[in-house]
């Protein structure tokens, strides 16, 4: 088990290396020039070349990569071209809103989707099942920004219960922090509710036809316990897999949601950095995201062993 964990952690090194090379090349092979963007529309070629020299972009690509990756290994992600700050401090500022948003989104998604899925499976074929599944199709197909603006209109503009947009740090008060996160989290969670509820239902339906469910009923067990004690844990592996995937995919959703609700998080930072061709920032953010992906996968695999004693590494 610990040997396995160690080998998996060791395995992240080549993954991160590949990601680093890939993103580095991708940025430099795209036809655009950060120096020209920084210099502005009225700059002449000489000025642009000067800026390029300052940024170190005039050196051979291999040299640039060696310098950059050497710094990254010491924990130095460089300085942003655009924001004029170190990338590390930039990410440090932006990470709290994104983590908060992701946390609430997954929390809402799991708390709503799993019971919905269980209910749908339990009442398989009934109107409850059909409503849940209908909602799930809707959740898949309506884009995040549409849901976002609809919710803003309803709860912020029309009913005036919640703020329209913005973000408040935890340090400035938990009440305000939660209040401003409700709408964006709900918006973002819709698609995950649809996904997880569907998976829960399918997985549970399969388990409900197993012999041990019949055994539990033969013992005189009540239906609620049959569902939650016997069925759900056996159905959990695919559900946890989907939740893990959901967390990984959140990053894409975060970009749109943060734009709709003007939350100063990593999603917004990514968009801004890409528009400004801010190489150091883009590279660092992508590296961070890939690292998170790998860790989530590992965490999911570790969860399997907790859920099912037959799974051992």
């Amino acid at each position: 088990m610990y040997g396995y964990l160690f080998r998996r952690l060791l395995g992240t090194i080549p993954v991160m290396l590949v990601v680093a090379v890939f993103i580095f090349l991708m940025l430099r092979l795209t036809p655009s020039d950060p120096a020209a963007i920084i210099a502005g529309d009225n700059a002449n070629a000489e000025q642009v070349a000067k800026i390029r020299g300052q940024l170190g972009l005039d050196r051979p690509m291999i040299e640039q990569f060696v310098i950059w990756s050497g710094k990254v290994l010491t924990g130095d992600f460089g300085e942003s071209f655009f924001f004029k700050k170190t990338v590390a401090s930039l990410i440090g500022e932006r990470i709290e809103p994104t983590l908060s948003l992701a946390f609430f989104t997954i929390l809402i998604a799991v708390l709503v989707a799993v019971p919905l899925g269980v209910l749908a499976a339990h009442r398989h074929g009934s109107w409850v099942d059909r409503i849940v599944m209908g909602f799930s199709v809707l959740g898949f197909s309506v884009p995040v920004f549409v849901i976002g603006y609809l919710l803003i209109y309803l709860f912020a503009v029309y009913l005036n219960w919640l703020p329209v947009q913005g973000y408040q740090r935890i340090s400035e008060g938990i009440g305000g922090w939660v209040q401003r996160l409700i709408l964006p989290s709900v918006t973002l969670s819709v698609i995950y509710i649809a996904l997880i509820a569907r998976m829960t239902r399918t997985s549970l339906l399969e388990v409900l036809s197993e012999d041990y469910i019949r055994t539990a009923r033969a013992k005189g067990q009540i239906e609620r316990k049959v569902l939650f004690r016997h069925a759900l844990r056996n159905a959990a592996v695919p559900i946890v897999t989907v939740i893990g995937l959901g967390i990984a995919l959140l990053i894409g959703g975060v970009v749109v949601t943060e734009s709709v609700f003007t939350i100063p998080g990593l999603g917004r930072l990514t968009v801004d950095a890409v528009l400004a061709r801010d190489y150091p920032t883009i590279q660092a953010v992508i590296l961070l995201f890939s690292f998170v992906y790998v860790m989530i996968n590992l965490a999911v695999d570790m969860m399997y062993t907790l859920l099912d004693p037959r799974i051992r590494y």
């Binding site: 197993e210 012999d211 041990y212 019949r214 033969a218 004690r229 844990r233 056996n234 099912d308 037959r310």
Partner: peptide, 14 residues
Amino acid sequence: MVFQEPMTALNPVE
């Protein structure tokens, strides 16, 4: 009641 297949009749994760 006792069933046919004791592997599947027991909950594998309990």
